[in-house]
Design a protein around this nucleic acid. Structure first.
Lengths: 128, 128
DNA sequence: GCTCATGGTATCTATTGGAAACCCAGTACC
DNA sequence: GGTACTGGGTTTCCAATAGATACCATGAGC
């Protein structure tokens, strides 16, 4: 992709890109992407992989991602029901950026935990 | 940095890296980083740059970033008060990943808006 | 006609986010 | 010497969101 025109700017409060940024930066989205990265998964499989997410919230997350064209939902008419979720081509383009943030988190979690411990009882930086 | 051992895994529900991931993926953090990227800024300057954030929430966001060692807060003892926020070295290492997500948002906001419009009245993908 | 599995909803409560008003210290002005 | 202004917040109150828990519909198999 050559240098594309980007008319959107997250610093503009009414810019749609800000809405998009806050949506993809929500609590469960990066984890859903992490699960779907390796191929289609069923609802219960996603739920099991991401421990701690309740079905209500997972449904909400997946519905939003579907509406935004990042995830596709396929219902197979069989019993018991079978519903598969997979990344769309658009969703796959988001894997790189989300992975960068995930890897950063895993690499620096230790330093942040350390900073939190150091923070207690620390005097404020004061100058002047 | 060579290939460092990464003992943290965001898919583990109790792993600190998940907490970190969800913290840096919160609503205002990427925008704060975007403002501080170019150097130290005062509270009111940050608030003006990021339109739409209330002082209470901006304070909460900055305090958390400070506690996590990503942002440094300096109080100058003068009147009217003067408080500067700047990225720490650790915070600067997060600029790259956050920029990747921001740029993705700005590049693909149009496609997501389109998907939202197409979503209305769309029949479900159903296979049998 | 009881049970199981799947993919969810419904209901209620706890936590978080946001809007609006207020506060404090010192300094400049009148 | 009273008043207003300034910066960096805090307080209070209310709305929106997240989470826990229970429940539901369908049809197959027993």
């Amino acid at each position: 992709m050559h240098t594309e025109e980007r008319p959107f700017d997250v610093m503009e409060p009414d810019c749609p890109s800000r809405v998009v940024l806050q949506r993809i930066g929500d609590k469960w989205t990066p984890l859903v992407f992490q699960v779907l990265k390796d191929g289609p998964r069923r609802f219960s499989a996603i739920r099991t992989s991401i421990q701690g997410v309740t079905p209500k919230v997972l449904t909400q997350t997946l519905r939003t991602l579907e509406r935004d064209g990042l995830v596709a939902r396929t219902v197979y008419a069989q019993v018991p029901p079978r519903v598969e979720y997979r990344l769309t081509p658009l969703g796959e383009t988001l894997l790189g950026p989300l992975d960068a943030v995930r890897i950063w988190s895993e690499e620096h979690a230790g330093k942040i935990l350390q900073a939190r411990q150091d923070y207690d009882g620390q005097p404020e930086g004061q100058v002047g």
